[in-house]
Every structure is written in structure tokens, then in C-alpha cells.
Write a protein that binds this DNA or RNA. Structure first.
Lengths: 137, 137
DNA sequence: AGAATAGCTTGCAATTTGCAAGTGACTTGA
DNA sequence: TCAAGTCACTTGCAAATTGCAAGCTATTCT
């Protein structure tokens, strides 16, 4: 099981934020509230890119901005991330109603399809389940 | 997403080895070939136990040995680990035939049931798919 | 032009890791 | 029964990684 490039807490959170919160820029990750230091963030973004999990490209309308995006390999992590969200919601006290978690588990396939659609169509809105933001789970 | 206790490469590998290779003792993890240092191994085992993911108990027939085992919370990580194996097999060059990986993906539910049965019944044999050891994927 | 913003880099102290060696409680074989 | 393992760690120490604050460069806004 080759976990290089992944297998670090920050890398996982970056992938999650790209996938579910529809984050794209350095600044968004920096201010996500998880408290990652900028040097570590820069390092992890480089690492994820080097491992082909994300790609970086300059923004068309603002040359200062870099847009990060999951690659095909990256979006293929969706099942892992979703199962991790469900596990975490069930076992760690995240203050989320069980109903929402169980709904995610029940509609797993539909949710995965939705995650992939949002990626394909570059939908910039965060993923919702049952009217609430998924990353709060 | 509370990832404390997990979210570290070694922790994940320990959980994988408990779940799929049916490892139980310190010595087995140490010699698994991944090259973990004994101080780190001891620390991770403590951490996983503190987070309720594994439990440790003295062996009945040999008082030197400690048997580690996944808890209910730990075995609930099975979907995550299985998806990670599948992802890794597809995207990282692990030298495994695609056929075996795709078979795992197709028979996901059956495999999960088998993993859980082995845990419940304390089956000490490593998990196989298609006649080969799963952790080689 | 001056101020603000985006995405970093740098320096440095503090924490964590990797490696080798050692420890103490058991078990095994002669 | 006693020496020689085995098992699960612990310890000491150098090296690598992290966290924090500050700074830097290229844009963009006013």
C-alpha cells in the first residue's frame, strides 16, 4: 500500500477540502481553520502535486492566484474520504446528528456520483447533505 | 474530521496489518518489512490504544506476549482501508494484476463481510483474494 | 503611485524521528 | 536449575521535520 504523498494528516485535509469544500487557492487552505502553517502548506501542496494527486495552474483572471485541483487520481480518493467522514462521524464526537451520518452511509453511491460530477463540472459550491455542510461531520 | 490517532502512515499500516494480515504481536509488526523503528511502533500502538482503535491484552499462554486487536471502532475502519487498497492498487505501481484489484472493487461488500467475520471469530489466517495475499496489492 | 493581496520563502527554536544499544520479565532446552 | 534465548519495550542521541513569525516578490486595486 503505497501511501507516500498521502498518509499525513495535512495532506488528507487538503484533499478533503478540495473535494468537499471546493477550495482552490492557497489562501483558502491557510484560513480553513485547521491551523496549518504556510511553509507546511506549501510543502504539502508540492508533495501532492509531485505524486500526481493534485495539479496547479495559474488563474486566468488574476495572475497572483494559483488554482489547485484534484487530478483523476486525486478524485479517485473520493470513496476513501467519504468512508473516513462516515467513520469519523460515527466514532469521534463531532457533534453531528447520527441521522445525517447514516444518510451519507445509505446514499454512498449517489454521494460519490455527486462528488465526481462536481469535480468534472468544476462546480464551485461546497457539498451538502441533508442541508448541511459535509465537512462539519 | 477527527483524524488524531490515525492520520499517520505508521498507524494506518498497523491497522492494515491487524485487519488483513492478522498480525497480533509487537514482533510481527516490527518484522513486517515496512521498517518501523521499535520506539515509534511502541508509541503508535499506545496512541491507537488511547484513541480506542486497538486494545492490548496479555497472552494467556505466554506472559511475555501482548496481543493487539482491533476494537469495534477499529474494525469499522475496514471500508476505509479497503478503498485505500483499491486506490493504491490502481494508481501506484504495486506490480499487481489489475484483475485482482478490480475483483476486490466488484466484491467490496462480500470482502467487507469477510473481514468483519474474521475479526469476530478471531480467525488468525491472512485475508486472501483470488488466491493471493491482499497486502501485496 | 501607494496600499493591499496572493503565494510563497526564510530563519530559528522546539518537537519528532531514526538508529543502535540496553533492560527486565518471562520461557525454553540441556 | 541455570544459561540462553525471546518478547516487548525503553533510553540516549544525532538528524530531520515542524511551528511560528517575519519577510519577500509579483500582481491588482484605488
Amino acid at each position: 500500500m503505497a501511501l507516500d504523498g498521502l498518509g499525513d494528516r495535512w495532506s488528507l485535509l487538503i484533499v478533503r477540502d478540495l473535494m468537499i469544500r471546493a477550495y482552490r487557492t492557497f489562501r483558502e487552505f491557510e484560513e480553513s481553520g485547521e491551523g496549518i502553517a504556510t511553509n507546511i502548506l506549501a510543502d504539502r501542496l508540492r508533495r501532492l502535486e509531485r505524486h500526481g494527486i493534485i495539479s496547479a495552474e495559474a488563474d486566468a483572471s488574476d495572475a497572483r492566484k494559483v488554482n489547485y485541483r484534484l487530478t483523476e487520481k486525486g478524485i479517485d480518493l473520493a470513496p476513501v474520504l467519504l468512508d473516513l467522514l462516515i467513520w469519523s462521524g460515527r466514532h469521534e464526537q463531532t457533534g453531528t446528528p447520527c441521522a445525517a451520518i447514516e444518510q451519507m452511509a445509505r446514499h454512498r453511491e449517489a454521494l460519490l456520483a455527486e462528488v465526481r460530477r462536481r469535480w468534472r463540472e468544476r462546480d464551485p459550491s461546497p457539498l451538502q447533505v441533508d442541508g448541511r455542510w459535509v465537512w462539519q461531520l
